[in-house]
């Protein structure tokens, strides 16, 4: 199944989802198509004015452009999500996930889709990490 991960660029979540046999809906793939496109209008990420306008599907015109631009990239991933894993308090999330307002809105958009969601905290010690991995595995297995 297609699993939306939050943060959408997390190495740990991407790896675990793939390891346990599902397809992570990753930001990296969404950006890949843009940055390797033949027409680079707005380097480095090639998020163009038109993309920011497409972001209006997810957030109104009164919302800052950075939020709409980010949602233009990962909003379509949310639209495909069949399940999701949110990892709260992930450290040092810059760039695509650097705007906390966008991150909160993205989670709301996923919740509105009424798909199964697993919420976790970023592990800070071994016990928490064990619990996290086991819960991710159980959650993903439960989806099959």
């Amino acid at each position: 199944m297609k699993i939306f991960i939050m943060p959408p660029n997390s190495l740990i979540l991407f790896d675990l989802v793939e390891r346990f046999g599902h397809e992570p809906l990753s930001l990296m793939k969404a950006l890949r198509d843009r940055v390797t496109s033949n027409e680079i209008e707005a380097p480095p990420l090639n998020v163009t004015v038109d993309d920011v306008k497409l972001g209006l599907k997810y957030a109104g015109i009164e919302i800052p452009s950075g939020i709409r631009g980010r949602l233009a990239i990962y909003g379509p991933l949310i639209d495909q999500a069949e399940a999701a894993i949110f990892m709260e308090d992930a450290p040092y999330s810059f760039g695509c996930v650097g705007c906390q307002r966008t991150n909160e809105l993205a989670k709301l958009l996923v919740r509105k889709r009424k798909v199964p969601i697993l919420s976790l905290d970023y592990p800070s010690n071994e016990d928490e990490a064990k619990d996290m991995v086991v819960r991710v595995k159980e959650f993903l297995e439960g989806l099959k």
Binding site: N9, L11, I12, P91, Y92, N125, V133
Partner: peptide, 17 residues
């Protein structure tokens, strides 16, 4: 920075695996 932090914590994830 996020990758750097996640990389450091991979030994925790290893325990989970």
């Amino acid at each position: 920075a996020q990758l750097e932090k996640e990389w450091k914590d991979l030994c925790l994830v290893e325990q989970g695996l």
